[in-house]
């Protein structure tokens, strides 16, 4: 997303409408269009004790929120890094607003990924007790850390006094956040035990594949609208700060 569209409230409003429709379509498709997953082992999940595949039943509908939200987190961290580099090159304060917006929205979608994943895993490979699915495998850990990195950037910004130093720190930390997502997705290759590597089995059912694609588009639109919304407010905050300084 470039700096431009969000400057106009109309574009933000249009994006918000599209995001809402996208989210509603995702909800409809994932609850009424896709069948309940009753055949054994269509999604690759291994129980810790035996190596058997287990039946996911209704819980697999979490997938349609969990996966697009993970993509959205990736977009947020990448955009934060792009914003950091762009600010260092151009020194335009729009990019600062983009980095901050991405981290704020990244916190929200990252929390969605982590919580939906944990509650799903409690059923899928835990004992059913809340929290039993959290097994510290690399993908879970690195996603948690990415979430902490988003939080750390926002905390750092609040703590640094001088405006120049604050903007510099934001940009540099944004660039440091960028590589964390590739590490998250690569981490799945190392020390892999429970988290599925790919979903090709699940996607072989045409309804599920369609819903997954639609959900990705829908959630991305919702993400874009959230970032645009936060961007508008952050730009306003910058303007207020300028007014106050003037």
């Amino acid at each position: 997303m470039s700096a431009k569209p969000a400057q106009s409230p109309l574009v933000t409003l249009a994006l918000a409408g599209a995001g809402l429709i996208g989210a509603l379509v995702t909800l409809y498709l994932s609850y009424f269009y896709t069948p309940v997953q009753v055949s054994r082992g269509t999604l690759w999940v291994v129980t810790p004790d035996g190596g058997n595949t287990i039946n996911l039943y209704e819980s697999y509908r979490i997938f349609f929120v969990h996966l697009p939200a993970a993509y959205a987190t990736a977009v947020c961290s990448t955009l934060a890094a792009i914003g950091g580099a762009a600010w260092l090159l151009t020194r335009k304060e729009q990019w600062q607003a983009i980095i901050v917006s991405c981290c704020e929205v990244g916190l929200a979608v990252g929390a969605i990924v982590l919580l939906t994943g944990t509650f799903w895993a409690d059923y899928a490979w835990g004992s059913g007790r809340i929290g039993s699915g959290w097994n510290w495998e690399p993908r879970l850990t690195t996603m948690l850390i990415l979430w902490f990195a988003f939080a750390a950037l926002l905390v750092l910004r609040r703590a640094i006094d001088g405006e120049k130093a604050r903007e510099m720190m934001t940009a540099v930390y944004g660039i440091l956040i960028g590589p964390l997502y590739p590490l998250v997705s690569k981490a799945v290759e190392i020390g892999q035990t429970s988290h599925p590597r790919n979903f090709s089995d699940l996607l072989s059912a045409p309804e599920i594949a369609t819903t997954k694609h639609a959900a990705t588009v829908g959630i991305m639109l919702a993400l874009a609208s959230l970032i645009a919304l936060r961007y508008c407010w952050n730009r306003l905050g910058q303007r207020i700060a300028q007014e106050r300084a003037a």
């Binding site: 287990i54 039946n55 996911l56 039943y57 209704e58 819980s59 697999y60 509908r61 979490i62 929120v65 969990h66 929200a108 929390a111 969605i112 919580l115 939906t116 509650f119 799903w120 409690d122 059923y123 899928a124 059913g128 809340i130 959230l226 919304l229 936060r230 407010w233």
Partner: peptide, 28 residues
């Protein structure tokens, strides 16, 4: 029980999503 547990898991995950979105809107 497995089936109902899967439903519970779906419900908890969904409420987490809605709680986060609600929190985001309130903060906003």
């Amino acid at each position: 029980s497995s089936y109902s547990a899967s439903l519970t898991s779906l419900w908890i995950a969904n409420s987490a999503v809605w709680a986060i979105l609600l929190l985001f809107v309130i903060m906003q």
